[in-house]
């Protein structure tokens, strides 16, 4: 007890674990990186090579066209794919959260330009292909 009192009086002098029955402090977990409060499993910056340019064009073609969207969307939102676009000279990114399982996208940093944000079946297929090109098969719940 005297030793314990001494440790309390002089923290750091006696290493933790020296006193029997005392548990070591849990290591501090690093905060998981998040995008719009959703846990990031991995991320990739699209570079200027041809494959990435094609991917970028595909993404812009989908989201730049009202016909990509319909009212058909799930009553849920579990985004498995995020996209962040930063224009030169504009500090506000255009961010997208995409939930394939719930068939819809949400935007941040801009006003959603269309009346609907659910995917058409064609859009769903295109986005699935984009996901597969980047990371392989789309897991359920993405």
């Amino acid at each position: 007890a005297a030793l314990q009192g001494l440790q309390q009086a002089l923290p750091g002098i006696i290493p933790p674990g020296l006193i029997p029955g005392q548990t070591a402090a849990a290591p501090v977990q690093p905060a998981q990186p998040r995008f719009k409060n959703f846990v990031i499993l991995s991320q990739r910056q699209l570079t200027g090579d041809d494959v990435d340019e094609d991917l970028k064009d595909d993404i812009l073609d989908i989201f730049g066209d009202e016909d990509s969207f319909s009212a058909e969307r799930g009553n849920c939102f579990y985004p498995g794919l995020g996209i962040s676009m930063v224009r030169p000279g504009n500090p506000t990114p255009v961010d997208l959260l995409i939930s394939l399982s719930c068939n819809q996208a949400m935007g941040d940093g801009f006003r959603w330009p269309y009346p609907a944000n659910g995917f058409t079946s064609e859009t769903h297929q295109k986005l699935t292909k984009i996901y597969e090109k980047l990371w392989g098969p789309v897991p359920p719940g993405a």
């Binding site: 995008f35 959703f38 846990v39 990031i40 499993l41 991995s42 991320q43 990739r44 910056q45 699209l46 991917l55 970028k56 993404i59 812009l60 073609d61 989201f63 730049g64 066209d65 009202e66 579990y78 985004p79 498995g80 794919l81 995020g82 996209i83 962040s84 676009m85 930063v86 224009r87 030169p88 504009n90 255009v94 959260l97 939930s99 399982s101 801009f110 330009p113 269309y114 980047l134 990371w135 897991p139 359920p140 719940g141 993405a142």
Partner: peptide, 24 residues
């Protein structure tokens, strides 16, 4: 032509992120 703001992204830096989605 693409709808704004996607018509301004030719020189944009685009990052794609794989997110957890629904926890299994």
């Amino acid at each position: 032509a693409r709808t704004a703001p996607f018509d301004e992204m030719d020189k944009a830096q685009v990052t794609v992120l794989r997110l957890q989605g629904q926890e299994p």
